[in-house]
Simulated assay, not measured.
Amino acid sequence: MSAGKNPYARYQIINACFTNKQKPYWTKEELIRKLAEHDFHVSERTLNTDLQNMRGNEQLGFFAPITYCVRERAYYYSDPNYSIYSAQLSDSQLQAFSSVVDLLQGFRGLQMVTEFEGAIEKIVRGVDQLRRDKLTKGEQTIEFERAPYYKGMVWFDTIKNSIDNKQPLRIGYKKFTSGKEDVHIFHPYFLKEFKGRWYVLGHSEKRRITLTLALDRIESASPERVPYKPNTFLKAKEYFKNTIGITHKKKPVEDIVLWFSPAMGNYIKTQHIHPSQQIIRDDEEGLVISLKLIINYELITMLLGYCPDVSVVAPVKLKDKLEELLMKGIEANRRKVRV
C-alpha cells in the first residue's frame, strides 16, 4: 500500500506499539516491520516524518511524548499513560466541536436522522465531558468504546467519491478463504457498516449480479473508463430492511419466534435485536418475541452468541441449523489440539 495513503491509520499503529505494556520500546526497524504487517510499506524517511508529526503537528494536536532511550536504543512514550486517543483538544478545537454539537442538537427527533441518534448522543456526551475537563481539570468520567485499527478504511474515501461521481472502479478483491485475487469492474451504489466493518454494495460486471464487497478485503481500487451502470432498483433502507448484517441472498422473509431466559429477556427488551421485534409473551418463564427476517449467517451467529439463554421456537429449519452448529461446537471443543 502506498505510504502516502491514510497517514492517520499509520499513527494508530505506531500509537498501539508505544502503548503496548509488554513492549513499550520500539526501534525504527521494528516499527517499519509492524507497519508492513498492516500493508503500510514505508521508508525510514516516511517513518521519521510520521514520528515528527505525532510529536509536533499542531493540526493533529497529538503532541506525543515520543522519546529516544539510549539504554534501550529504541523509541518510547516518556509518559506511560499517554495515548493519541487521550490527547487534549486545544481551546479552538473544542470550540469547533461545541459548534458542531450545537448544530446536531437541532436535528434530534427528525425522522431522517433517527438512525443516527446513538452517534449524536455519543458526540454530545463526549464534548460535554471535554468541556468539564477543561474547566475542572478533573479525571475522565466517561469512557467510550474505541474502534480499533481497521484496514478497510483506506478505501472508504475512494469508494464514497466513486458513488458520488458515478465512477466505476476496477477492484482487486481477495476473500479470506482464498489466496486468489479476483478483479471486478464494479459500479458502487452505497456503503454499509456492520460491527465496525464497512461494505460496499454495487453491480459486478464479472458476476453480472448485485454484489457486496468488504472493504478490508479490497487489495486495489482504481477508476475504470466504462459507462456507469446507474442504480435504478436498489434502495439501501429497503434492501436491508429484513436482514441482520450484510448477507442478503434471495431468500424469503421468515416469521421467526425466539424464547429468551428471564434475565436475558431484560436485555432484549431494552435493546431490540431488529426493528421488527414484537413481544408475544413476557412472564416469569421468559420472554418470547417475533421477528421478520431473512435467515442468514449473521442472524445465526448472533443467536449462537446468546446461548444458552435463547431457544428457537420457529421456524424448524432455523432451530435445526442452530442445533447442528452447537453439536459441531461441542465436537470441536473436545478435539485434542497440539500446541
Rank of each mutant, 00 (worst) to 15 (best):
L258K: 03
E139A: 05
G152L: 12
Y149L: 09
S78D: 15
I185L: 14
K250L: 06
E205G: 00
R208W: 01
R225S: 13
H41A: 03
D91M: 11
K250E: 15
K269V: 10
N333C: 03
Y150E: 13
E219G: 00
L325W: 08
V312L: 03
K251I: 14
M264N: 09
G126I: 09
G4F: 08
L215D: 00
V70K: 12
I159C: 01
R225K: 12
T46F: 06
A16W: 02
E121A: 12
Y297V: 07
K160A: 09
G202V: 02
E115T: 06
Y25I: 05
A36W: 06
Q278F: 05
H184C: 02
D128F: 11
L291T: 07
D133C: 05
M327K: 10
F116W: 12
I294R: 14
N161M: 07
L213R: 02
L130M: 14
R132C: 06
N48D: 15
Y11H: 12
L213H: 01
F176K: 12
T270V: 11
E139R: 11
G305T: 03
G245Q: 03
A74D: 08
M302L: 15
V253Y: 01
E181I: 15
K237N: 04
Y25Q: 08
N266A: 07
E224Q: 13
A236C: 04
E224W: 02
C69T: 11
L60I: 02
G118L: 12
V100A: 14
L104W: 05
T301R: 10
Y8E: 10
G172P: 03
